[in-house]
């Protein structure tokens, strides 16, 4: 399946991530997943929440630079070779993966987020 992920621009200085997460908590929003990517100058925080459109709106109102991105969310059985089998399918279809991170769902299942260059094609391949 696909999910809408919120990406937030973050300056590379102390307290930025804390500020963002505090704000999200103050709105009583529970984060399903969070991943941080950084360079020496800036970072991008990516989060998965239940109502991305609403949370995104709250964030922009607060003055954050954000964007919504459609990402693949794949439940992967906890067995050897399962993840690489999926990656192989994508590679064969010439789909490029930008980044990936994982979290545990409410049902204690491992969910992997994949940001790919062609999300719809990727979804149909994995099905």
């Amino acid at each position: 399946m696909t999910l809408q992920q919120i990406s937030i621009f973050m300056e590379n200085k102390p307290g930025m991530l804390c500020e963002i997460t505090k704000f999200i908590a103050s709105k009583n929003v529970n984060m399903r997943a969070l991943a941080v990517a950084d360079t020496e100058k800036f970072g991008i925080v990516r989060i998965i929440v239940d109502d991305p459109t609403l949370v995104n709106e709250m964030l922009t109102k607060e003055g954050y630079a954000t964007t919504l991105t459609k990402v693949l969310a794949i439940e992967i059985p906890d067995e050897p070779g399962k993840f690489s089998a999926i990656l192989e399918k994508l590679a064969k279809a010439d789909i490029n993966i930008e980044y990936s991170y994982a979290f545990t769902s409410k049902e204690s299942k491992a969910v992997t987020i994949l940001r790919v260059d062609d999300v719809d094609k990727a979804e149909s391949i994995i099905k």
């Binding site: 990406s7 621009f9 922009t60 954050y64 630079a65």
Partner: peptide, 10 residues
Amino acid sequence: LTSEQFSDTI
């Protein structure tokens, strides 16, 4: 940087 200018990848 505004949201319009921002995109998801580094």
